[in-house]
Design a protein around this nucleic acid. Sequence first.
DNA 1: GTCCGGTCTATAACTTGTTCTAGATTAGCG
DNA 2: CGCTAATCTAGAACAAGTTATAGACCGGAC
Lengths: 206, 206
Amino acid sequence: MEHMTAEARPASPPLTERQEARRRRILHASAQLASRGGFEAVQMREVAEAAGVALGTLYRYFPSKVHLLVATMQDQLQHMHGTLRKRPPAGDDAAERVADTLMRAFRAMQREPHLADAMVRALTFADRSVSPEVDTVSRLTTAIILDAMGLEHPTLEQLSAVRVIEHTWHSALITWLSGRASIAQVKIDIETVCRLIDLTEPDPAP
Amino acid sequence: MEHMTAEARPASPPLTERQEARRRRILHASAQLASRGGFEAVQMREVAEAAGVALGTLYRYFPSKVHLLVATMQDQLQHMHGTLRKRPPAGDDAAERVADTLMRAFRAMQREPHLADAMVRALTFADRSVSPEVDTVSRLTTAIILDAMGLEHPTLEQLSAVRVIEHTWHSALITWLSGRASIAQVKIDIETVCRLIDLTEPDPAP
DNA sequence: GTCCGGTCTATAACTTGTTCTAGATTAGCG
DNA sequence: CGCTAATCTAGAACAAGTTATAGACCGGAC
């Protein structure tokens, strides 16, 4: 496992201290506003005001509302990845541990449903211009799942299973957020898809 | 199997002929515009003009852009359901047939990627106010998958598998539409998730 | 310190989804 | 036919994302 939890910005010019602070204020304001009204409550003018920057500056840091919310999700995911690592999931086999981890993440979302709404809606609404950022989020999610499986060198088959688990995770979240599925239903879906993991683990002989 | 392919409008007052025609013109215009530039090319003023109705009328028929595009998807799905029924999928077991069917649907989307983009983005972006319509689309998709499986009375376990397959289908489509996954990758994901079906079919003894 | 290019602020303007209004048209009904 | 309520039209108006502009400010080169 690599240890770059908090760093994923290979980007262009290294930000000055004031700039880093601005960026942080913006992300904080974004999360704050999202925690109340969800996606639509994150209004660019309000984010700018709450963060104490001009609207143009906000757009310099995040070229669109979707970019901003995806970056917010990146931020939150990194926190969560750290948190999850501290208490590794219980469970005998990999499938259980992954389901356990995702349910833990799901409970975190239940605590801030509006924030979850804003982030997930932005994630799935993102078009090609946001692909790099969305990809970063996806890699973070993959890392979390692989951590839960406890694998150093997953096979191609296992990576496929992880992809499908991620698909299910995102889509199930959406159905929950839009009120079309209950918490129990999401739990079942997660547990169902996690059985795919067993399929890829032909238990190593008696 | 029931035969209500083209009917799913239990709604309030039965539309007059002219109204039905308007509705159809609107959906046609929507699909037309979507086929060019995708989600953002479907602009309400343009749809209204192309359909030859006033903007206010468009909003009376479809209370938002997302409603309109979800209805467009409903329309397209019904066509596809009909088409798919004519030539049932080849394949020995249920998993193969479902994967086959979904890949056929996927190829249809590849022929109109912009239209697919508009419809799928609307579907996942829809909030609670569109739940009933999104649910209808979901039921249609479920029906298509169950048809492919060839089941009259699926078990609860099988229904769970179908749910997960649907999740994967939607999410994989999104990653493809936003350029983060190749066609080949989507194929693998579909085939991977379809293996869940085998898990629910403890083959009925010799 | 002074100067310069890039950054930030404040604000207006533009775009597109959505709502509203006033008047014309239509459908159903006696 | 003539009436009435609902519907439709044309167009203005509003909301929020995004872009553009002009000037103030900051940080590094000299």
